[in-house]
Structure formats: C-alpha cells, structure tokens
Design a binder for these strands. Structure first.
Length: 422
DNA sequence: TCTGGGGTCCTAGGACCC
DNA sequence: TCTGGGGTCCTAGGACCC
C-alpha cells in the first residue's frame, strides 16, 4: 500500500500559520510578479475566485469579500515543506517527495504491525501539531488510487484527514463518483478523448478491456488504466539531479534597453548556477530567451532565444553569466518592449564526471570554482545577494518582479523571526 | 496598467549506420 | 511483377504534473 500525504492549499496554509487571524477567511497567494492566483483556500473559492484568475480582473471580488492577498514567498514555503518531509521520514523509511506539497509513503510491510488508517492519522495529527499545516492522506494499493483517496479525505470531513481504499468494493465506489478529469494523468486532451469514446467516469475507463485501452492509448494512458485497477506501475522515484534548470521572470514594467535586459539575464544566470551547484552538477549548454508582452496586441511582438555550448561543463557563475550575456547580445533587437527573459541550463551531469578539454580557454577552473562556492557561503550566511555581479545592479529596477504583498522570511532569516508579545 | 514558473516523460519522424 | 532488414540517435512537439 501507498500513502499520499497532500498539504491542503499549501501556500495559503503556510501564510495562515504566521497570520493566525485568517482562520476561516478567504486567502489567495499570487504568482510571481503578482500576476495570477496560484493558490486559494476553499473560502476564497466560495466567493467566486479560481486558480489562474489574473488578479486585476477580480479586484472587485477581492475587495468586496475582504480576501487576504499574499505575493508568493517560495523561501518560506520550501522551508515549511522541508519540515513536513522530515516528519514524514521519521514515520516511514521510504518517502518520495513528489512536489513541494505532496509526498508518497511506501507502506509495504507496515500493515503487519499497524492499522494503516490509524497510523497515517497519527502522522497527519503530528504534522498539524508541529507545523500547523493541515494535510489530507489517501491510502491505496497504487499511487493513482492514493491520490484519489487524498482528494476524498480533503473534501469530506467525515474521513478525518485519512481515506483508505483497500477493498475492491471501496475502489469501485470511489471510481464511480470521482471526476474523470481529476484523475492523476488525465489532462484536458485525454479527458476529451475519453468523453468522445463514451467514457464518463474513472470506473468506466477502468472496466474497459486491456485490448481496447492499448488500441486507443499509448504508454501513459495504459499505465493510468492499470493503476486504476489496482496494479501499481507508476514510478515516482526522485531523480537525484534535475536534467534542466531554468530561471525566468516577467518584469514589473516593460524594458527596452540592452543594459537593463543584461542585468536580468545575468541575475537569472547566477540563480541557475546556484541551483546547479546546490545539486552538485555542471551544465554544458546555456540558453537565453527574451520576449515581449503577448497580451499587448497594440505593440510589436518579438520572441527569440539562443543557446551556446560551453567548452567544458561548468557551474561557474561568471562563465555561465558571460555566455548568457553573449547570447542576449545576439538575439536582442532594439525598439521592442520586453516583458520577460529567462535562462535555461541543460545537458547536466554530475560534477565528478567533467570531460576535460585540451584547449580549454579557462586555465584557473579550480580557483573559479572556489570563488563560486565562497559566494554561495557568504550569501547563505549574510543574506541573499550580499555578494553579486556588478552587472546585476542597474539604477533602473523595472526589470524586477512585482511583489507587493510578500510575507517576511519567518523561517529562514534571523531578521524576520516572528515576535510574540504577551 | 495589470495575465506564473517551474519540471517530466513519451512519441513520431528524420537522418544516419551497416 | 518483384525494389531489404535490421538498427541507433536526435529533435520537436505534445501531454502531463505541481
């Protein structure tokens, strides 16, 4: 059996931990640049807000219902996520963190000594007590069914946070009333296709014969069908390192000058290099893209990108930033109102497996590597961007993201520790 | 005025090899 | 009349996830 532990409205719940007056109130967390709603509480849903709504379009709903708005603060959320995962690791030997707010627990063997429902309710209670984050748990023979269970646990109070699907009767009942397009692995396209084929519920899909499934779907669809029938086949083993690393943002205001774009691209390159070092990797390929605002059809549209291969795979901020700058210079077109830029690193491999180049133009790689890791240390100790590249500092800051409602970094910055007055 | 930011896996088709 | 039979690698695009 697998358990899926899913944090309820995770980003909103994190904010509510530090703003206790918000219990039972509508709360939304916005995307970067304060663009759209990316997380919202059930109370916010009930006043007519949806995930994906541009916030400027729903301003009147927000004001009328006194909805509390937050800019997203990923440092806060990932710090909270780590605390929850560490509690899970104390409860189970095999924990697979699937996303910032979801983990799978492999419970094989636990049924011998524990009642799984009671056991997982204990885990959920502990997370609530120690972090104040509410979670929903689904327990089932496959991960897809466990996900379905967790949705039931979230939506029906009677489950008391834990829904177990451990008999065929419960499985068929769950599949008969669950929304087809909420099934893990069924996106909009597959949903439309299933409807066109006359399939309306997950149960109808699960009951189709294998030959029918194979003739209409390829591997992903077939796997979902197996999982719905109780045969586990989806592997979510965490990759030890990412295959691509990307940092990109919309700008607060439109940007035209090359020097301002350069500041953004160098900053993003530095962020990518930092993520790269964080997972002990090096990258061979650097890509940069820039684009105008696609929603402004009154302006000239332009989107372009380019890539280069480094002579030797690297995680050096200076080298990656320089490569990114060169690419930017080659794709930049004057007279365009730019709205976003981004840097992507790919062809990533472990730091220990660098293929040397006899004609490497950089002669002091070891020193450069020490320089980068020293920058990381200083920034970790004294705060983000204590040490940075001079190109990142422009007088104009309109390339930065808007973030007007951001909470302090309560969990990661000593200056932002919560003060309680009694 | 204002519309996110990351990722993964799979497949088909092309180009190439013998 | 009949025009082989295996492979590999790469890429773009699609679909999905959070």
């Amino acid at each position: 059996m697998y358990a899926l532990v899913d944090c309820n409205s995770f980003f909103c719940s994190c904010e509510k931990v530090f703003h206790p007056g918000l219990q039972g109130k509508p709360v939304c967390v916005l995307s970067s640049n304060d663009g759209i709603i990316v997380a919202l509480t059930p109370e916010a849903k009930s006043v007519g807000l949806h995930r994906g709504d541009p916030i400027f379009k729903v301003k009147d709903i927000v004001e009328r219902n006194d909805v509390k708005i937050f800019s997203s603060n990923m440092y806060l959320y990932s710090a909270m996520s780590k605390r929850i995962v560490s509690i899970l690791r104390e409860s189970c030997d095999r924990v697979d963190t699937y996303s910032i707010d979801e983990s799978f627990l492999d419970l094989r063997g636990y049924e011998k000594n524990f009642n799984l429902e009671t056991y997982m309710r204990g885990v959920a209670d502990r997370i609530r007590l120690w972090t104040d984050i509410p979670v929903s748990v689904g327990v089932a023979p496959t991960k897809t069914l466990a996900k379905i269970g967790s949705k039931f646990a979230k939506n029906y109070r009677g489950y008391n946070s834990v829904c177990v699907i451990d008999t065929d009767e419960k499985r068929r009942k769950a599949l008969s009333i669950f929304d087809l397009d909420d099934v893990w692995g069924v996106g909009r396209r597959t949903w439309e296709k299933l409807l066109a084929l006359g399939v309306r519920t997950p149960l109808e899909f699960a009951d189709k014969p294998e030959g029918w499934v194979r003739s209409h779907f390829t591997k992903p669809g077939f796997q979902t069908w197996c999982e719905l029938n109780g045969y586990p086949c989806i592997d979510t083993e965490e990759a030890s390192q990412k295959q691509t690393i990307c940092t990109s943002h919309c700008f607060k205001d439109m940007v035209t000058g090359l020097d301002v774009l350069k500041a953004s691209v160098v900053t993003f390159a530095g962020s990518c290099a930092n993520k790269l070092r964080g997972q002990g990797s090096v990258a061979l390929c650097v890509s940069v893209f820039i684009g105008s605002n696609p929603f402004r059809d009154d302006l000239v549209q332009y989107w372009n990108g380019g890539s280069v291969r480094l002579p030797v795979a690297s995680c050096d901020t200076l080298e990656i930033a320089l490569a990114a700058t060169r690419i930017l210079e080659s794709i930049y077109r004057p007279g365009i109102f730019y709205k976003r830029s981004g840097v992507i690193l790919s062809e990533i491999s472990p730091d220990s497996l660098i293929q040397q180049d006899l004609f490497d133009p950089v002669s002091n790689r070891d020193e450069r590597k020490r320089l980068s890791s020293m920058m990381d240390d200083m920034n970790r100790r004294f705060g983000l961007k204590t040490v940075r590249l001079a190109v990142e500092d422009t007088e104009a800051d309109h390339w930065r993201s808007r973030s007007e409602y951001r909470s302090p970094n309560y969990l990661t910055d000593i200056k932002d520790l919560l003060v309680v007055k009694c």
